[in-house]
């Protein structure tokens, strides 16, 4: 059974039609890269999956784990296992990372009728994840993304991914604004996350991320539709030729 099944979805944002009949199926164990020019609808796809207010599915359906989730609230989707790594992570001043991470973890456990992680085990886990992502453990005490550099913000997204262990990770241009060292750390984190039970949708502008996270499929999104699909060699072709030959 597919983990994610986007069937012929059209969607609009602020009265503008952005997605115009998009199909995408992701099975457990697969990594799908979505590439495409600016304004093709990549971020809209990410936000539609997460249920961001203001993004409206006008026809078609989004199924997750066999359920039509079109009417689900964003936090309900998160509880079910959909995770979105943000392109521009927001700052939440005064709320420490530690507090935020624990609240996320607890909310998910509560919704799924699981036991809460005890505080000591949680702190230990959060510290070791931070270390593995080259984040100073002190960062856990700081406000969520408060005064973080671009690279720190993105690594923080990956830390949340590894902590929450979702079923489906949607990474919205996580590579943007990263230098090569940070890119490797982030890619290594995503690779650590990958397993046979989860899926990844990797939205990116550039081929270089795919040198580190090797996708099973590459799709090209243009004007709200997937216009070409292939394996990782498609990304290399795009790198050479650009998008113009497809649109």
């Amino acid at each position: 059974m597919s983990l994610l099944n986007v069937k012929n979805v059209t969607a609009k944002v602020a009265e503008q039609n952005i997605l115009k009949g998009l199909n995408l199926e992701v099975k457990a164990g697969e990594v799908h890269a979505i590439m495409g020019p600016n304004g093709s609808g990549k971020s809209t796809l990410a936000n539609i999956l997460a249920g961001k207010p203001g993004y409206e599915v006008t026809s078609g359906s989004v199924e997750f784990d066999g359920h039509d989730i079109s009417d689900w609230e964003p936090h309900e989707r998160a509880h079910a296992g959909i995770f979105l790594a943000f392109q521009y992570p927001v700052e939440i001043p005064g709320v420490s990372n530690m507090e935020f991470l624990k609240a996320s973890l607890d909310a998910k456990a509560f919704a799924n009728k699981q036991e809460q992680t005890n505080a000591a085990a949680f702190i230990k886990q959060a510290r070791s994840l931070a270390e593995s992502l080259d984040l100073n453990p002190d960062f856990l005490k700081r406000g969520v993304n408060e005064g973080f550099s671009g690279g720190e913000k993105k690594r923080n997204e990956i830390l949340q991914l590894l902590l929450l262990q979702p079923r489906l990770a949607v990474l919205d241009e996580t590579d943007s604004g990263l230098d090569i060292d940070a890119l490797q750390v982030v890619a290594e984190g995503v690779n650590r996350f990958r397993n046979d039970n989860n899926g990844v949708v990797l939205i990116t502008h550039y081929q270089r991320l795919l040198d580190y996270i090797v996708p099973d499929y590459v799709h090209v999104l243009a004007d709200g539709k997937i216009v070409q699909s292939g394996d990782k060699s498609l990304a290399l072709e795009l790198e050479k030729k650009g998008y113009a030959w497809l649109t």
């Binding site: 207010p53 964003p74 936090h75 927001v90 996320s104």
Partner: peptide, 15 residues
């Protein structure tokens, strides 16, 4: 902001 609220919700925290 709507973005802060959405970021929290996306991590499972109700509004």
């Amino acid at each position: 902001s709507e973005d802060q609220l959405f970021a929290c919700q996306q991590r499972g925290i109700d509004p």
